[in-house]
Structure formats: C-alpha cells, structure tokens
Design a protein around this nucleic acid. Structure first.
Length: 777
DNA sequence: TTAGGGTTAG
C-alpha cells in the first residue's frame, strides 16, 4: 500500500517535471527520489533535457536547479557534454552556474576543463575556481587562480577575497594575508559581514589574536558568526574562561556556537565540561549537524563511553549519516578505543568502493584516507600489529598516499613489535617523499629506535630535533632507562628541566623512576618522587607507586615496601603487589613471597603470574609438593599462563617462536644446531639453571623444559642465518628466564657474537659472556 | 564560523 502510494506520488512528480519548471515540483521530486528512485529520475531529466530544442537555452538555469537539488553530477556532465557537442554555448551565467555546481560536487577537474572552454569570464567565474580549490584543500592552486585573475586585470570581490584569506591562513601565508587586508583598507573596499568575518578568522587561524580582537572590537554589527570565531580564538589561545564567558553572553547561539565551544573544551582537556555542554545542547533542543555528531563521537572516544557511542551510531544509521567521512572515521575510532576492533572493522568495510577524484595538478585526492588511518591505529592500539602492517603495506602497494599520521602510527607499531629494519625503511621513506619531520613523528622515531635496541640512532634523531617537547624528552629518557643507562637517564632529565626549561609530566616521572630503579639509585628515586608531588603538583598514580615498590624491591628493602604499601593505601592495587612479588623472587625470600602471592591472588584470582611465581619459588626451595599444589590450583581455576613468545626480524620477515616450536620451515637445522651448541657451551662452564623449572621431575627431564625456550630458538635461527659480525636482535613478550640469560651469556662468549634481547622489562646486551643488566633484571 | 586519524608509561 505504502509502496503504491509512493510510486503514484513519484509518477505525479515526473509528470509535473515534464510539464513545467516549477521548482516546487523539483523539491517534492527530490524528496521522493532521494530515498527511492533516483536512477529513474536521473534518466527522465536526461530525456527531458535531450528533448529541449536549441532555442530552449533559457530553460537551462532551471534544469541546473533540478540537478542542484538532486545532487546529480552525472546529468551535469551530460548537459555539459551535450552543450559542447552542439557548439552552442553557454551564456556566461549558465557557464558560471555549471562551474559552481562542479565546485559544489568537488569535481574541480571538470570545473577546470569547463573554465578553459569558456570564451568569456568574469569575476564570478574566477571566484568559483578560487573558492572551489580552497574548499577541497588545494589552497596553492586556488591562490594560483587568484594571481592569474589579478594578472588579467579582473578585480576581486568580497567572495574572492574571503576564499583568498582562507587559503592564506591554511598554508601559513600570514604576511600575504596581512598585505591583502592592507590593500582592502587602502582602497576603501567595503567590508561586508562575510568578508570581515573571513579576515577575523584569518587572523585567528594565523594566531594573530591581537589583530583579530581589534577588528572584532571595531565591529558595530556583531553577529553570531563573528562571536563564534572569537570563541574559537579564545579557545585556541588557551583562554577557556573568556570563551565560556562569551558563549554564555551570546543570546543567539547557532549550531556552530555549540560545536565550537564543545570541541574547544575537549581540545583543552576539559572533556567532562564538554560532555555537560553536549547534554545542555540536547536539553535546549538545539539541532545537531554533522559537525556536532563528529565532535560528540570524538568526545565519546576520548572518554571511552561505549554505550553513548553505540547510541550515537544507531541514530546516525537512522539519519543515514554514516557515509560522512568524518563521522565514519570517528566511529572507527570510538570502537577501536573502546577495544571493539572487530566492530570498528565492520564500520570500515562499509566504505563504498574507493572513490578517486580527478588528478589535479599532479595531486591525487583519495577519499577516506583518515578512515584507513583510524583503522591502522585501531589495530595498533588493540595489539593487532600484523593487521596494522598488512593494511599499511596494502596502501603502499595500491599507491594510496600515506600521510604523517599513518607513518607515525606505523613507526610506533615497529617500536612495539621491535621491527628495526621495517622502522628504518619508514624513516628512509619519509626522507624520500620529503614529508616534514614533525615533533610527533620524531618522538615516535626516537621511541622506535630505543625499543628496537638502537639507542645511538634514537640519540641522533633526538639531537637533530631542535624544537623539543615533554614527550620527545620523555621518549629519550625512557629509552636510556630501558637500556639500563639509569644515570644517563637521570642526567637527561635534569638537562630537560634546567637547560631546556621543559616541564616534566606524569609519564616523564614514570621514566625517571624506572631509571632510578634499574640503576639502584634509591635516594635519587625517593627525591624525584617527592619533587613530583611538591614541585610539579603531580599526584602519584598507580605507575609511580609501582615504580617505587620496584625501586625498593630491587635494592632489597623488602620491609620498607610493606610500610610503603599500607602508608599510601595501596593494598588494593595489584600491580604494586606484583612488583613486590618479583622482588621476593629476586631476593629468594620464600616466606614473604608466599604471603605476597596470597595477597595478590585475593585481588587477581585469574592472573597467572602469582601462581607461576609462587610455584617457581616453591620449586627453587625444593618444595615440590607445594609447587605442584599451586599448579593444580591454577589448573582447577582455569588460569592459563600467558604463552612466552620470541621473534626475530630477518630480510623483512618476522620469525616467531614459542617453547618447543616445530612449525618453522628450518626447524631441523635449528634444533640440531641448538643441541650441538648446548654441548659445546657445557664444555666452557654452562649448566642448566633449574630454579625456573616448576615441575617435580627428574633432573634430565627438567633440563628438557628449558632447552627449547622460545628465545633460544629465535637466537639460534639468527645465528644460522646471518654472518658472524651481525648483531642478533631478539624480542620477547615475557621476562627472560635465568637459564636463557645464562645460555645467552655463554653463547656470546663462545661464538664472539653480540646478542641483544628485549624482554618485557628492559634490554639485555650480551657480549663476551657479560650482560649489560649485570644479572639484575 | 563549527568536525575525524599520529608520539612518551602501562
């Protein structure tokens, strides 16, 4: 019934369309066809157009009106082609109209073609091109047209100049914008509201807030748009208070006012205030637009409020707004940051087949690069490095342009995954394609080189980065801490504060406390913990408390830890007990370890670590029965140990191993070499360290548990596939065990090989039988 | 006039 009604309504529209050019019909027609019969309507419009005789040129503007309403680019192209073919152009107004529609449809390639065909041009013709290119982000091309326009003696109008100001502010041509403003004043050109607001906006975006303020103050007819720009100006200059005050004073708020203030609060770190304002907006029944939804989703993502994100998603599906690129990428981000990467992937896969816009002046414009970037980053945030890398490689092989966001994410994937050679290639690629090395990318590079074992390269990148911030400094401090250079990390921390006058943040203190802990600098660590609270007003978080426990524990101050935990009300924080337990193991304090594991198990009954550490400690003290009891309890509760995994990158491939792994194509060579190597190592003093074997079994059998640990397999794979001077770099997802540590020391001595192992805590450099950690890890 | 993706710890 509904369908018949719709069809009859549709039929009437078409009849009306065929008989007259009443725009009212076009609106009805557009409303119906938007959701149902757009293809048929398009054909009818084309047929209708074809039936027009050449003396119907006066009808062309009306036809263009239909096309405009229907957003029908194909018919526009058809009309354009037909007119060219018939040789009957196009009066200037029709030409300008078609041109503006191309610009509206963001098809600037066709616009340029038509522009070249036009025998007559006026200021509007030029302005469509200037503003069209500004709208799609090709600001330099827009300015080129502006320069050509001036060269041909055409005088710009307010619309042209508005676009020119947008181009100038977008590519940082502050002087040029100021010069044009001077020219306007000198020539007494009328500043209507649109042009005036464009100039204020230009000054705001160029961070010339004084100029913006002056122009705003001298404005008699202050409108909502200029107030919105000033709210944004205050927010950008960090004056949140003034922007909120102006917002509250404004009686006629539009959707942009709300959007500006909500996104401004969010960008300044006041997410909760932003959320309250969003609810206030709903309460006041202000209408959302696509910008509001994007801002709301970004807010949801930064606060990880999955439920609100899902509600917004449902509404966006109902409103058919999910095809908006901003909304889609924000949705992907919401699901990624809330840990639902598969849901993010579903949203990503709903992108229609890749649209590639015309190739303009050698620049390929790709749609939805940001969604791709969000997806890569989502995979990375959710630990799915392989998928992130695959997606990146796919982009490169398809010739899809990568930008600084994607490159930074990929470098950070290389850091987490320990892929030095891949990370180096990205570094080289950025050099080659001439991307600017911004500070975010550099921080990511410093971190990558540190985490891949190349602290020298991290230092080179750090030294070359002249403008430094807290994150860059923290990355290099942390790199030194991770490599065991605690004193150097502390020295850098002092340099950062004293010489560079950069404020440390909470992460910097985690790095410096870790450095103190690994270097045994107990007094310095205590001092920094106090300084953090008293001088920098940073309240210690879980990470800082855990670092302090680790600091005391490594230094053997086990009794002090107990007091520290209770004095600071930390008994509910499992990471603190975990660090305590590790210290008990390190100092072989079985009784205290048992007590600590019980505490930890009360908090984390499903965490494998306390069971494993406790059972290891029992085994070390030959309390096999107790050790077995712990293991059996673990099994009964269904707790599974996180599997140990080691990997090595050779020739652009990652080779992963687990304990006793037989899946590698070279497994026969690996095992035979390893067995032979262990025999040779025993001749120079290596013996199996049994303290980490947790089973009550015969000694020979115990040794077998250790013999094929994943790091041994990965290192042997490296030895047999590289020349004798290449350092072997292996990554491990757990802490390296005592036996493997011994094995690696003896191997480095026997074979004269440099072996670098990154475990979950730090780097170990094995050379000539010695490890850089000093057997303290 | 208002919108999206990237870096340091865990």
């Amino acid at each position: 019934m509904q369908c018949t009604l719709l069809r009859s309504k549709f039929f009437n529209c078409i009849v009306a369309l065929n008989h007259c050019f009443n725009p009212f019909n076009a609106v009805i027609c557009s409303a119906v066809v938007n959701s149902t019969q757009i293809e048929i309507t398009r054909k009818l419009i084309q047929r209708f157009h074809a039936s027009l005789s050449s003396n119907h040129h006066d009808k062309q503007p009306q036809l263009l009106g239909f096309i405009d309403n229907l957003k029908d680019e194909r018919t526009l192209q058809n009309l354009h082609g037909r007119v060219i073919k018939s040789g009957s152009i196009v009066d200037l107004n029709v030409g300008n109209y078609v041109l503006s529609l191309y610009a509206k449809f963001k098809d600037l390639g066709s616009a340029q073609k038509l522009f070249d065909e036009m025998s007559e041009r006026n200021v509007r013709t030029w302005t469509v091109l200037v503003s069209g290119f500004a709208r799609i982000g090709l600001f330099r091309v827009g300015l080129d047209y502006y320069a050509r326009m001036l060269g041909e003696g055409v005088c710009p109008n307010g619309f042209t100049l508005s676009s020119v100001f947008k181009c100038c502010s977008s590519i940082g041509l502050v002087h040029n914008g100021k010069a044009i403003h001077g020219w306007i004043l000198k020539n007494g050109i009328d500043l209507d509201a649109v042009l005036r607001n464009s100039i204020i906006d230009f000054y705001v975006k160029s961070k010339e807030f004084d100029y913006a303020n002056k122009l705003f103050e001298f404005t008699d007819d202050v409108d909502t748009v200029s107030c919105n720009i000033m709210i944004s100006a205050n927010i950008q200059s960090g004056d949140v208070k003034s922007s909120l005050a102006l917002f509250r004073r404004l009686t006629t708020k539009d959707v942009a006012t709300w959007n500006t203030v909500i996104s401004g609060m969010m960008k300044n770190g006041f997410e909760r205030t932003a959320l309250e304002l969003l609810y206030e907006m709903v309460k006041e029944q202000a209408c959302f637009n696509e910008f509001t939804y994007t801002i709301a989703l970004t807010l949801v993502s930064s606060l990880s409020i999955l439920e609100l994100g899902s509600q917004l998603h449902a509404r966006l599906i109902r409103l058919r707004l999910c095809d908006n690129e901003y909304i889609r990428s924000s949705l992907i981000d919401v699901y990624s940051k809330c840990g639902l990467i598969d849901k993010a992937s579903i949203v990503f896969k709903q992108i229609p087949p890749r649209k590639q816009s015309s190739n303009i002046n050698g620049e390929k414009l790709m749609s939805d690069t940001v969604s791709l970037s969000s997806m890569i980053s989502g995979y990375s945030q959710n630990g799915r490095f392989k998928e992130a890398l695959e997606m990146f490689c796919h982009m490169v092989s398809e010739g899809i342009g990568v930008d600084k966001y994607i490159l930074t994410t990929i470098v950070s994937v290389c850091a987490d995954y320990g892929l030095l050679s891949f990370g180096e290639q990205i570094h080289g690629l950025v050099h080659k394609i001439g991307h600017k090395f911004d500070i975010v990318f550099c921080s990511s590079l410093v971190d990558m080189y540190s985490k891949c074992g190349c602290l020298e390269n991290a230092l080179i990148v750090f030294d070359k980065t002249t403008t430094r911030n807290t994150i860059l400094w923290t990355a290099i401090i942390n790199g030194n801490a991770f490599h065991g250079f605690g004193r150097e990390a502390v020295r850098l921390f002092q340099l950062m504060i004293d010489d560079d006058d950069i404020q440390p943040n909470e992460v910097t203190f985690v790095a410096v406390l870790t450095a103190c802990s690994h270097a045994g600098l107990v007094d310095e660590g205590r001092n920094y913990f106090t300084v953090m609270k008293e001088k920098y007003n940073i309240n210690p978080g879980i990470e800082h408390f855990t670092c302090m426990v680790d600091l005391f524990g490594r230094a053997g101050y086990l009794d002090e830890i107990k007091n520290f935990i209770y004095e600071n009300n930390l008994s509910h924080i499992s990471s603190v007990w975990r660090a305590f337990l590790s210290s008990c193991r390190l100092h072989k304090n079985y009784d205290l370890g048992k007590w600590v594991s019980e505490k930890l198990l009360q908090l984390e009954p499903l965490d494998a670590e306390p069971y494993v550490l406790l059972s290891n400690m029992c085994a070390t003290s030959n309390r096999w029965e107790e050790s077995a009891k712990v293991r059996s309890l673990m099994q009964k509760k269904g707790v599974r140990k996180h599997p140990g995994q080691s990997w090595i990158q050779l020739n652009n491939q990652v080779h992963s191993f687990v304990i006793g792994d037989r899946s590698h194509p070279q497994e026969a060579d690996i095992y035979s070499y390893l067995d032979n190597l262990i025999g040779r190592l025993k001749e120079i003093g290596y013996s199996t360290t049994l303290e980490q074997v947790t089973q009550d079994v015969e000694e020979e059998q115990q040794e077998m548990f250790l013999r094929y640990h994943s790091e041994k397999l990965a290192v042997v794979y490296g030895i047999i596939n590289t020349n004798s001077v290449t350092p072997i770099r292996v990554m491990k997802n757990l802490r390296v065990c005592t036996d493997c540590h011994n094995f690696l020391k003896f191997t480095s001595q026997l074979l004269g090989r440099e072996i670098i192992v990154r475990d979950i805590r730090r780097f170990h450099y094995f050379k000539n039988g010695v490890c850089s950690c000093g057997d303290y890890w």
